[in-house]
């Protein structure tokens, strides 16, 4: 099959999108820019889960979550578990989500990002007595606004490298 020869390159493309997402997520920014920074890794992950559910799903979500845990310095497993859970719901209903309009998808992404952040907060609250603050949910909004653009860009990438 021709697929096997190019699948390595395709995997590399997916990997690179994750690297870019992680870089964007850790890039130092001013206070306000950092407060509304969208959840880049989760959005990219969800795109690939919906587009290529047989390639990217819970396993990759777990590994990405671990990387985020290391980068952010939170306890191991917090983001890994949250990402796995969120990507599960996306992977389960990927056919339905594909048929949504971009606006509907944006709303769904907002909901998923919110779920992820709630899970992370609850674990942090239980482990480290984290204090809640209102700005914590701003990225939900910014992620929803970002989603259509991200979707179009990543779809272009996917079609460019002929990933089915």
């Amino acid at each position: 099959m021709i697929e096997t020869s190019s699948s390595m390159g395709q995997r590399f493309v997916i990997f690179m999108t994750f690297v870019v997402a992680l870089v964007l997520a850790t890039m130092p920014m001013s206070f306000w820019a950092a407060a509304i920074r969208p959840d880049w890794p989760l959005l990219v992950l969800l795109y690939w889960v919906i587009a290529l559910p047989h390639r990217v799903s819970i396993g990759i979500a777990f590994i990405l979550g671990i990387s985020v845990d290391i980068l952010i310095g939170s306890s191991f497993g917090i983001h890994a578990g949250a990402y796995a859970l969120v990507s599960y719901s996306a992977a389960r209903h990927y056919q339905r989500i594909r048929n949504f309009s971009l606006l509907q998808q944006s709303l769904l992404m907002a909901a998923l990002v919110a779920v992820e952040r709630i899970i992370v907060f609850l674990i942090e609250y239980y482990l480290n007595d984290a204090q809640f603050f209102g700005q914590y949910f701003w990225p939900v909004l910014s992620s929803a606004i970002l989603w259509p653009w991200l979707f179009l860009i990543l779809r272009k990438v996917r079609r460019r490298f002929q990933m089915i």
Partner: peptide, 11 residues
């Protein structure tokens, strides 16, 4: 994945 995450958290 969730079990593994929980295990990692505890560890």
């Amino acid at each position: 994945a969730l079990l593994l995450a929980f295990l990692l958290l505890v560890l």
